[in-house]
């Protein structure tokens, strides 16, 4: 039987009203921010299912915006996030949309830039403040943001996995979980770690020839 911490039962400490519609939404926003280049001037939120139906009353809109501004789910400025975004000159747009066969509490967050293509992240809030990121700019993926996580896309070739794991081990990092998928000879790897992600680790992996994309994010508070 899975063991629980007392703080799983008494917690999270969060901004209300709903762990799934508010706390989870803030986490999806913050994970998306950490994956995106932060020079965006506009963000569009596509809200699906229960998010679309009840977002105003649950403050899901404010929580998502707070997240893309970098706030944690326990930040009591979440309720003012729309005003803060306005002051920062960031355009915010909400669109209710059917995103297909996804969890009822799902948001697609699109970051717009002045001089380059937009970038998007899709995530679902699955209860109790827990979230799953399911898509990054068209790449289907699955990670929770509960662990330090490295996301890598690379040209599939023999031995790459062992090169990556060697670098991690040389940086004294233990792997908690690892998932590799492949499409059209491009592999996507999600590695969840027991130790925080550091820039020099990311740089070391990025220097491998086959790497097309790499990003690392540290866990977002629940």
């Amino acid at each position: 039987m899975k063991d629980y911490s007392v703080f799983d039962v008494l917690g999270p400490v969060m901004i209300g009203p709903s762990s799934s519609h508010t706390a989870g939404a803030a986490r999806i926003g913050k994970i998306a921010r950490n994956l995106a280049d932060n020079s965006f001037y506009k963000v569009t939120f596509y809200l699906h299912g229960s998010f679309a139906k009840t977002y105003k009353g649950h403050g899901t809109d404010k929580a998502l915006v707070a997240g893309i501004l970098g706030m944690d789910p326990s930040d009591d400025q979440i309720r003012n996030s729309l005003k803060i975004a306005e002051k920062k000159g960031i355009d915010i747009e909400f669109i209710e949309e059917n995103l297909g066969y996804v969890h009822p509490n799902t948001a697609k967050i699109v970051f717009h830039y002045e001089n380059k293509e937009s970038f998007y992240v899709i995530g679902s809030s699955i209860g109790g403040g827990n979230v799953v990121i399911t898509n990054i700019n068209g790449t289907e993926i699955e990670f929770t943001g509960n662990y330090p996580t490295i996301l890598i896309k690379y040209r599939d070739k023999k031995g790459i996995i062992s090169k990556i794991t060697t670098i991690l081990s040389n940086h004294n990092i233990n792997i908690a979980t690892m998932k590799v998928t492949r499409e059209n000879k491009i592999a996507t790897m999600v590695v969840e770690l027991d130790n925080p992600v550091e820039n020099n680790t990311i740089e070391a992996i990025a220097s491998l020839n086959e790497i097309l994309y790499i990003t690392g994010i540290n866990p977002i508070e629940r």
């Binding site: 008494l10 999270p12 400490v13 969060m14 209300g16 508010t22 403050g59 309720r79």
Partner: peptide, 21 residues
């Protein structure tokens, strides 16, 4: 009421029931 107005609470065990404990 703090919860419904986007104030800070402790889910105990959930946000909806956070007033009781």
């Amino acid at each position: 009421e703090v919860n419904a107005s986007m104030g800070r609470i402790v889910a105990a065990p959930t946000a909806g029931a956070s007033g009781i404990l």
